[in-house]
Write a protein that binds this DNA or RNA. Structure first.
Length: 805
RNA sequence: GCCGAGGUGGCGGAACUGGUAUACGCGCCGGUCUCAAAAACCGGUGGGGUGUAAACCCCGUGUGGGUUCGAGUCCCACUCUCGGCACCA
């Protein structure tokens, strides 16, 4: 369809409408359909409003689920992905969803992933890419590492085996370097859902605190810990280290407790991170035999190792203040460590030995030397100053965000473009050698290592730097890398020389409207924002936020649950479209409820959409056949008023928060009004030979054009029956005639003491005094007033009169 | 625990800036058509009450308070449901 082909030369204003590209699963259900139908309604509306619209589509075709499905069915993932794409494309067509198919991209094909690899190289050059040993989630049964998303409650998603932790060499993108900007620029995302922004902020998780140095008893480098509560430092009665703490060996050298601690550490480091971070996990620990000094009190405090301290956050060492931290409190109770109150509760003083939980509120400093009797918040700043002055600490910010682990020991992904040279170490593949092709003849069953290791032709190579025998990196990239830049590729999808055209991309982005599921609120959107910022810093882009406006639609559920094959509650669109037509399925999908909220699918509800469209069809065709007329002269102005009222409301709904449900209800009301305002011409119309009333014609034409974004096929057919040569999409969006909205009389509600008692019909321009007089003389009102004095009369022009007695 | 969203008829949901609560649709009830049923079409439909009727009254937006002439809407306190994060020091 030429309608959806973007014209790069058009002088019209641009509108880039992007729908999250799908993962090629076997078939789409009506829940997926909601996404595309919303996008399509927006696109058609913008076309009618005269925008040069870019509406592309593609396939996020690499990844684990596709690979797993292919393994189960014994076919190659590429075959299955391409088959699925064919089927999904057919489904999209059957919904009547329009895209610029010339711009289709498929992330698993070399002409796309060549550029995903190019992006890897750019990050590598920039120092934003590194390889390091890291603990990964490991399923001992499937013999593979798992992404965090594939671990459900500590168990493997596929086989329910408890996931363990394993140290592996992994590739990372240094997203933490962008933490501050990713956080700060959330401010710029004015037209994003608030909840998505908050989810991103929480995920980045910035906190401000102090890194404090605790001198070691007996010499050696001090232990550094991070705290957000320096104000409690006088109450730090012990120090706790993570079991993975790197300096543990050094600390234990001469400790009598060495054997105990080593045994404990051995046990704890085998527990998976998911087990370790469960909140109901029993806190355990062991004393190291060593002490350090509280930098404020100079008191000697014991150093422990405990399972509740995480190595990945802060420094892996925590100053424990049992009186004012619930975790430390529980631990201190269990191991009989001292509890020292340093912040007192105003009004009812605390007693360390009698506390039942930590006191974490604000209060007044006690047992804190010179800071005593100050409010703790004020003391916190002064203490940080003191520590900085004494060089025993410094203010620091800490993020919860971790670097992005992008390597997968799996087959179905873009190969990481790196050559491992015994002399030079990891060397990036030169740009001109891209793409590093994914070999197709590989046994791709998971074995624990990337299947690419068994493809000798792939692995064996020479170092591009020194020419010696070298091997290729065998890991593949996380699919989220593929999807972190696809919106740039759509502008020049067949370009063999560059990932994207700088000129086109800077003209067309940021995306004007991004539409997708809220399940991508964190990862995909954060990664895309990150890659965009990196590319901007490298001079490839002139904008640093890719998506100006984001809309996240709710899920469609059936029988109270998310649709899934295993639950057997999947509603397939194919038969529904076959039976009722695409327009009915589209109208129902949009009418089902506010699009940002979850909604329950109902087949009966869809019957309602079918009845509505039939009713509309009958009306418009009766009009085109000349078999209906207005019931009266007065009906004409009423009809104009209703038609333009509906137009205004639908326009507002389309421009605002996409309230398609209320937009459609407006159209339904207009149809109802048209039925009320017309009657069949006796003796069957045409014979009568009179021209249709212009108000009726206008209302019908507004109706058909309002219908277009939602039920385009029917609208197109009716538009042509109305005698228009050009398509309804190029007919433009009708304009509201303010004069048509003006009415001569209004119904004014009459209240007595705020309760509705009566209604009067008055001319619009009636004066306040006259209205009061009129209302007070109404019989129905006199009954209520009787002999009581009227204290006050409140008049809201055109709406109501409230008589206060 | 923290953060966010939400609670309106039998159901999905409307309600502009505080001003007619329940638009629109589903379901249900009644009718037309039919031998009959389904479909289709037309009409009615928050709960309770007074009245032969026309009408009219009372109660009603999770709970309890408050502000206001007037509260689904604003404020305070609670409660339940859903979503995200969660031993992050």
């Amino acid at each position: 369809m030429g309608l959806f082909r973007m014209d790069p030369a058009s002088p019209k204003p641009k509108y880039y409408c992007l729908v999250m590209f799908p993962y090629p699963s076997a078939a789409l259900h009506v829940g997926h359909g909601r996404n595309y139908i919303i996008g399509d309604a927006v696109v058609r509306y913008k076309l009618m409003r005269g925008f040069n619209v870019l509406s592309p589509m593609g396939w996020d075709a690499f990844g684990l689920p596709a690979e797993n499905a292919a393994i189960q069915r014994g076919i190659h993932p590429k075959t299955s992905a391409l088959n699925n794409i064919q089927n999904m494309k057919r489904q999209l067509h059957s919904w009547g969803v329009g895209y610029d198919w010339d711009r289709e991209v498929t992330s698993c094909l070399p002409d796309y992933y060549k550029w995903t690899q190019w992006i890897f190289l750019k990050l590598f050059e920039r120092g934003l890419c590194y390889k390091a040993k890291a603990p990964v989630n490991w399923c001992p049964s499937c013999q593979t590492s798992l992404a965090n998303e594939q671990v459900v409650e500590g168990k493997c998603e596929r086989c329910s085996t408890a996931v363990t932790q394993k140290e592996l060499e992994q590739w990372f993108f240094r997203i933490t370097e962008y933490a501050e900007r990713l956080l700060k620029d959330i401010e710029k995302l004015e037209r994003w859902p608030e909840r998505v922004k908050i989810m991103q902020m929480n995920w980045i998780g910035k906190s401000a605190g102090v890194r404090c140095l605790f001198p070691l008893e007996g010499g050696g480098d001090p232990i550094e810990c991070y705290t957000t509560r320096v104000d409690t430092i006088f109450g730090a009665t012990y120090m706790v280290l993570a079991p993975e703490y790197p300096r543990l060996g050094e600390l234990l050298k001469n400790s009598p407790k060495r054997a105990d601690v080593e045994q404990y550490v051995e046990k704890e480091t085998n527990v998976s991170r998911f087990e370790r971070t469960r909140e109901d996990l029993e806190k355990t620990g062991v004393f190291t035999g060593r002490y350090c000094l509280n930098p404020m009190t100079r008191g000697k405090i014991p150093i422990w190792v405990a399972n509740y301290v995480l190595m990945e956050y802060g420094t892996g060492a925590v100053m424990a203040v049992p009186a004012h931290d619930q975790r430390d409190f529980e631990f201190a109770k269990k191991y009989k460590l001292p509890i020292q109150v340093v912040i007192d509760r105003p009004g009812s003083p605390l007693n360390g030995s009698q506390m039942e939980s930590a006191y974490v509120e604000d209060g007044v400093m006690v047992n804190s030397g010179p800071y005593n009797s100050q409010p703790n918040r004020a003391a916190m700043e002064k203490m940080a100053d003191e520590m900085e002055a004494k060089k025993s600490g410094r203010r620091a910010v800490q993020f919860r965000l971790r670097d992005w682990l992008i390597s997968r020991q799996r087959y179905w992904g873009a190969p990481i473009p790196v050559i491992l040279c015994p002399k030079c170490g990891p060397v990036p593949v030169p740009e001109q050698d891209l793409p590093v092709l994914l070999p197709e003849n590989v046994r791709f069953k998971p074995t624990g290592e990337s299947p690419l290791k068994d493809a000798p032709d792939f692995v064996k190579t020479v170092c591009p730097r020194c020419g010696s025998q070298a091997s290729r990196e065998i890991d593949t990239m996380d699919t989220f890398v593929d999807s972190s830049w696809y919106f740039l590729r759509y502008l020049s999808p067949r370009d063999a020389h560059q990932a994207f055209s700088k000129e086109l991309v800077n003209r067309w982005l940021p995306v004007d409207q991004y539409i997708g599921g809220v399940e991508h609120a964190i990862l995909h959107l954060l990664y895309s924002r990150f890659i965009t910022k990196v590319l901007k810093d490298l001079g490839h882009l002139e904008f640093d936020e890719p998506f100006g406006t984001l809309f996240t639609q709710g899920m469609i559920i059936k029988d109270g649950a998310k649709m899934s094959k295993s639950k057997g509650n999947v509603v397939s669109p194919d038969e529904l479209i076959e039976r009722f037509g695409a327009d009915t399925v589209r109208v129902y999908t949009l009418f089902i409820g506010p699009p940002e909220r979850d909604a329950e699918w109902s087949d009966q509800g869809m019957q309602g959409a079918w009845r509505f469209l039939n009713r509309l069809w009958r009306l418009v065709t009766a009009f085109t056949e000349g078999s209906i007329e207005l019931i009266s002269k007065e009906a004409a102005s009423l009809l104009r008023q209703r038609a333009h009222g509906a137009l205004r409301k639908v326009t507002q709904d389309m421009e605002g928060d996409f309230h398609f449900n209320t937009a459609i209800s407006q159209i339904m009301e207009l149809v109802n009004e048209l039925y009320k305002g017309t009657r069949e011409i006796e003796g069957g119309g045409k014979a009568a030979g009179h021209a249709p009333d212009p108000a009726l014609k206008e209302a019908v034409e507004i109706l058909v054009r309002l219908l277009t974004p939602f039920a385009p096929h029917m609208a197109e057919e009716l538009w042509s029956r109305l005698g228009h040569g050009e398509g309804v999409h190029s007919s433009g969006w009708p304009k509201v005639d303010e004069r048509a909205l003006q009415v001569e009389s209004v119904t004014v509600v009459v209240q007595v003491n705020g309760r509705v008692r009566h209604r009067v019909e008055v001319p619009v321009e009636v004066g306040e005094e006259e209205l009061k007089k009129r209302v007070l003389s109404e019989k129905a009102i006199e009954r209520w007033i009787k002999d009581q004095a009227v204290k006050q009369v409140i008049v809201v022009p055109g709406r109501l009169v409230n008589i206060v007695l």
